[in-house]
């Protein structure tokens, strides 16, 4: 899957520990369009490994001249947010994925409640543009520790007027989820993004009030199909193939000149199935093809999407 090559054109500190990045296409052209709630996966080459983090797009989907993301420096970070804060400068070139939307606004809903906690505001930044454009009814509830911790408030106030409700904890304004959900008309959709505790509480409250699952939405990201490097041993062709952290087993074997059949490259068709003879670790199955029993048995693998947490895996090829 091809990546988009972008250049960082602007960086701003928008709140305590939150940096706002603007990307433009490296070739100077337009970037692909996207829908509100989409994210991109940013690849960050840090020495001999690459971090990949998903970040929501903040900009208006109508504007294809740039993409914007916000990154909070996480103290416990795997390295990705630290990399974005410390290594990335205006002019840095990065590879990002095409936009993916796993947090879309329901197009059949007429009333939408958006609930953001802290940095969880990011996916709603693009969604509100779509909602304003289509004219659907909505309210954005934004809860934060203090104004110092909250990005984009002025921008949102200007855009949304009284559709924005701020809950500033430093002023003792606590978001009462039960009261909020109880007063919504039947058929309302609710969307939440924020700290785990808040997401769990909202989902529990909605269930308690009898909201159907199809009306409760929380943000999900595409898990990049990457992991740790390992080696494939090919029994029949007597070859070893190293699989890097960012490539699939199929890609690694192709690069090494091994002929592996494939069709969908997405774990659905079954064409690339290979027999596993041995491994010193565990297989991470990511396909939709093998049955749970087959996955459990560990004798088969779909190398287009699956990999292994191991030092070696031996295949009958």
């Amino acid at each position: 899957m091809s990546a988009l090559n972008v250049i960082v054109s602007n960086i701003e500190l928008v709140a305590d520990g939150i940096r706002h990045f603007t990307f433009i296409a490296a070739d100077g052209g337009e970037l692909p369009g996207f829908s509100g709630g989409s994210h991109v996966v940013v690849s960050m080459p840090a020495g001999n490994r690459t971090y990949r983090n998903a970040y929501s797009l903040l900009s208006s989907p109508a504007d294809r001249s740039n993409y914007q993301i916000a990154v909070r420096l996480q103290e416990q970070s795997r390295g990705g947010s630290r990399f974005m804060h410390e290594q990335v400068k205006v002019g840095t070139r990065l590879d990002i994925s095409w936009p993916v939307n796993l947090f879309p606004i329901s197009r059949v809903g007429h009333q939408h409640i958006l609930v953001a906690g802290g940095i969880g505001i990011t996916p709603f930044m693009s969604q509100v543009h779509d909602l304003l454009r289509t004219g659907a009814g909505f309210e954005l509830h934004y809860a934060f520790r203090s104004p110092r911790h909250a990005g984009f408030i002025d921008q949102l106030k200007q855009l949304l007027g009284n559709k924005l409700v701020c809950h500033d904890q430093s002023q003792g304004q606590i978001l009462d989820l039960h009261a909020l959900l109880s007063r919504q008309p039947l058929g309302t959709h609710v969307y939440v993004c924020g700290p785990d505790g808040m997401v769990d509480a909202l989902i529990a409250t909605a269930h308690e009030l009898g909201w159907p699952d199809a009306h409760i939405h929380n943000e999900e990201f595409l898990a990049p199909p990457v992991g740790e490097p390992f080696t494939i041993r090919l029994r029949q062709s007597q070859k070893n193939v190293d699989v890097g952290a960012e490539v699939s087993m199929l890609e690694a074997m192709e690069a090494a000149g091994v002929d592996v059949p494939y069709l969908c490259r997405g774990g659905a068709c079954g064409r690339c199935e290979l027999e596993v003879l041995a491994t010193d670790g565990v297989i991470e199955h990511h396909d939709h093809y093998l049955s749970d029993a087959e996955k459990g048995a560990g004798k088969k693998i779909m190398p287009c999407v699956s990999r292994a947490k191991c030092s070696f895996i031996e295949l009958n090829l």
Partner: peptide, 17 residues
């Protein structure tokens, strides 16, 4: 049909099938 649906649900822009 289950497999094909799962595949299509994660179909990505820029990568038609």
């Amino acid at each position: 049909m289950d497999r094909a649906l799962k595949f299509l649900m994660s179909l990505q822009q820029g990568n038609p099938v």
